[in-house]
Amino acid sequence: MAKNNIKLEAKNLNAYYGDFKALKDITISMEEKAVTAFIGPSGCGKSTFLRTLNRMNDYIDGFRTEGDILLDGKDIYDKNIRVDELRKEVGMVFQKPNPFPKTIFENVVYGLKIQGIKNKAHLEEAAEKSLRQTALWEEVKDKMHKSALALSGGQQQRLCIARALAISPSVILMDEPTSALDPISTAKIEELIYELKNDYTIVIVTHNMQQAGRVSDNTAFFYMGELIEFGKTKTIFTSPSNDRTQNYITGRFG
């Protein structure tokens, strides 16, 4: 089904929290510069899967995986992979906007500073570029040194996306990025996702079916740790082939 290159791939992936098997034999390919949406009821494993894509689950006691996750064909769970290097490549945006209690400028350049970049002109240029990409620049250019916490929720979320973009990742993972936002802010983020896919590979977890329909190219439906159906979003939302997918997207689950 892929017309583009495959950016991210899971092969026979199993994931466990202790004895609990949270992901069961997941095999899926995600296209480069496209949006892949993960949908499914709470507890279906979609967020667990998203978080394995940049090893966010490494910190959880008893969490382990079997199988492969390949980024550009390389296994990200390989011993030689440095997790900080991986996260430069695979950025993440969370459900609730989580800016640092710092200025807007400090938030955007945080990752770059950690990487050791100190040149002020370079940092300023990078900050402006990221903020323009997230359509936030005009709104914040005159208060770059004010606290990020003074921004609205929608602006904070766009700031978090700008922060993720500043370190030039190739993949952005989004875990329900608009569930805490009003419809206008949601529309702005969705528009942003649509723009960003020209340059980035995006994977988004969403509980909003219409959002999956609007922003994604491909949709994966998870249920009880299994990947039930994966296909073009158009097909999933008009004629899904699995009854469980249909029941879920039409709101008849349970």
Partner: peptide, 9 residues
């Protein structure tokens, strides 16, 4: 209801 799938059809 913004219907999808069988409802939409």
């Amino acid at each position: 209801f913004t219907p999808v799938a069988v409802d939409l059809r």
